[in-house]
Design a protein around this nucleic acid. Structure first.
Lengths: 339, 339
DNA sequence: TTGCCGTATTTGATCGATCAAATTGATTCT
DNA sequence: AGAATCAATTTGATCGATCAAATACGGCAA
């Protein structure tokens, strides 16, 4: 059925008695072709199973149709699934607009920039998507210098005048909501977070303070379950009756200290990132709208790529949602007797 | 410093007074070029920052230098990090051999085949890597039909005569070791697994049976923490003193029922996949050698791609390792008084 | 009828690389 | 010396598409 040698626009044109350019026009500018001719060509394309070779197109147009994205080292934490969801959303959105995602790894930010620059110069990618911005991030300047269009998932911490496009999730607003929810239930709400060197952690802590948190009721530590429990015990001893945590990993530990105090089926502990662990245990958590973020980022990036210029500098903050769950103490498993 | 217009082999050749082909040879077949000439060209390449355009190369060679890999929907379980590690390893290995990874999404196996076929015909990818094989998997036949070289991570369940290349992890052997370890400690070892419809689950269960497990001491259920606890309670009531679980998610639940019985700091519960949760809680777990698997798969795939033929049919089973950990009951957090 | 105009289609050139074959020049063999 | 051999380099053609400009053609006004 399918011919031995793959058809090309030229071979199709020859078979139909039209010119190469007409076939090309049917594909790229159908409006230029007379309907009758167009139909004939389209039918032939379908019948032959013709697919345009991107190499030929890329050579002429200087466009690859691909976006570069770094696959970050696996973080040794409970979360990580948030990134998975983000990757999935990005890939799907890109695909819907006819773009492909090119994955690569790099040990550090400098290598990342070097890799991206290289791929850009080789004509492998048309744009890049940066993840996980941090203080004094060298990447935006590096990429801007080589002319590669890019958008960052994460705001330019410490550089309010940054002249690039970014999208981020408003952790502060998310924690604010979570805290407010617990305060409304009459709680004295503590906060378990990361050391203040973490910009993301500071942002989330600010949300807790804004919603009425008392500096004395915070516990800043590493991101482990064990530390979550330790912090919760400390805070509880101080009179705190509920805690908001900067991550689900910490919340998982905190739950151990507060499980007994559940009110109306709701735990006085709220985590962050809405990971599978939170879902499995019935732990409330702040959920990042990563799908929306991916859509915004790609729109900005691809529009820029198609106009062959840098994305207009702009920042977008998305507000997370609060995922409330009923805590069903796992120790009292209902059907523990029968298989 | 960097010239306005990007240099090409032709422009470099003209500037050096050599021919285009000589520049090409310096890059692809340096052995053909006289050392003195080679040096001169190499220096010019470095000085100019020249990078070969893959589009030009691909057009001529009919090779894209990319491998297609589907990004699976995010699974709603505790694991998933295993896949992350695998992706990372694959990307890194591919990169080391000069290949790129092209990501895409698909709703089902048929769409996956259609996408891959398309990308292959468009010259976007040279080969594919399939993940997560299952019973009556339609993908191998589909890809073989269109001539796309591919290797599968996962054995051809239910089709021992499959004529393609695959690599898998010997879950049976892993569970066997885990069981044996507990048996050696004098335990009566139960098994908490998935319903027998799961080929992977059956394989792992076989390892438990082979190591002396008694059919009566098994509990098959869904993959949730809650079910893990339920199963453990049931089995404990039957006189089982330790359990091996088909996943860390189930093990996490089982721990709740067995935590009190820790012997010499080791829990009588062993999970599977060695996820972050297991690491965080000090739970022993069977660890899949995904990095080794990625390396083997890519070697087979890329060798085939470079010879423009299908990978020779072959199957490799890798033996997982048993990651033993000390259980430190989290309820007795040491410094719960001071921040 | 002639000339002009806009639509539909075609022709020629080009993107940047590699393949295949031809050429050059030095070396060896008879 | 002349032919044959081999290494180093060059030339011409080509991969498959798109851009830019040229041509064909029917309709319409002068």
């Amino acid at each position: 059925m399918v011919p031995q040698v793959r058809p090309t626009q030229a071979s199709l044109a020859a078979a139909l008695g039209v010119s190469r350019q007409t076939v090309s026009n049917v594909i790229n500018s159908p409006g230029l072709v007379r309907p009758a001719t167009r139909k004939r060509v389209e039918d032939a394309i379908k019948a032959s199973g013709y697919r345009p070779q991107i190499a030929g197109r890329a050579l002429r147009t200087h466009r690859s149709g691909a976006i570069g994205m770094r696959l970050h080292p696996v973080v040794d934490g409970v979360n990580g699934e948030v990134l998975d969801r983000f990757f999935h959303a990005v890939t799907e959105t890109a695909q819907a607009r006819g773009y492909r995602i090119n994955l690569f790894t790099a040990g550090d930010a400098e290598t990342e920039v070097a890799q991206l620059t290289d791929m850009f110069h080789q004509g492998v990618i048309d744009g890049a998507l940066l993840i996980d911005s941090r203080l004094r991030d060298p990447r935006p300047a590096g990429l801007a210098a080589c002319g590669l269009p890019f958008v960052v998932f994460g705001r330019p911490w410490g550089d309010p005048g940054a002249a690039h496009s970014w999208v981020d999730v408003d952790g502060r607003a998310g924690v604010y909501r979570a805290t407010q929810h617990l305060v409304a239930a009459g709680h004295r709400v503590g906060f378990i977070g990361w050391p203040s060197a973490s910009a993301v952690g500071e942002d989330r802590r600010a949300g807790w303070l804004a919603a009425g948190g008392d500096e004395a009721d915070q516990y800043l530590t590493e991101d482990t379950t064990r530390d979550g429990l330790g912090g919760a015990q400390v805070l509880r001893a101080r009179g705190v009756t509920a805690v908001v945590c900067v991550s689900d990993g910490l919340a998982l530990g905190a739950v151990q200290a507060f499980a007994g105090r559940a009110q109306g089926g709701e735990l006085p502990v709220i985590g962050f990132d809405n990971t599978p662990v939170a879902r499995a245990l019935g732990l409330s958590s702040v959920s990042q709208p990563v799908e929306a973020a991916a859509a915004l980022i790609l729109r900005s990036l691809l529009d820029a790529v198609e106009q062959r210029e840098a994305p207009p500098p702009s920042g977008v903050l998305l507000v997370p949602t609060l995922e409330l769950r009923q805590w069903e103490p796992i120790a009292a498993y209902p059907n523990g007797e029968e298989q």
